[in-house]
Amino acid sequence: MPGIDECLLEAMRLPGARGAALVDWTSGLALGVVGESPGGDHEAAAVEAAELARLAAEHRAFAPGDGGALGGATALPVEDLILSNRDSYHLLRFVPTPFDSSVFLHVWLARAEGNLALARIRLGEMAGRLVLA
């Protein structure tokens, strides 16, 4: 069964992967990091990505039509976030946990080699395998 490090190493096998992290979006804590970090500092990158994730998770405009009310107390209003710039993609995947938490997987991909569609599918599978028995 995979732990945090195995999950991040698996994410690093995605085409074009430069770095991966598991981050708590309430506190900005990086629970695990592998590879390079965008901006050169893993902790700072985690804090900044957490800020973005928190906005997406909390604002009603991004929630599903039922307002996120269906699916129980630990259901997530948002699945993932995609951000692109001139040379890279950032993919943030919220991790559904059976207990109360606020974590997401963050993968940083080089734009030339990265495949966003593939990464999105794989990351969803990894997020599920990380916590669901």
Binding site: E6, L22, V103, R129, V131
Partner: peptide, 21 residues
């Protein structure tokens, strides 16, 4: 409970690390 498959290693690490900090 992890050995019995009631909880994944990832869930345990996540929860334990969260509680630790």
């Amino acid at each position: 409970v992890v050995d019995r498959g009631r909880l994944t290693a990832g869930a345990l690490e996540l929860c334990h690390l969260g509680a630790l900090f």
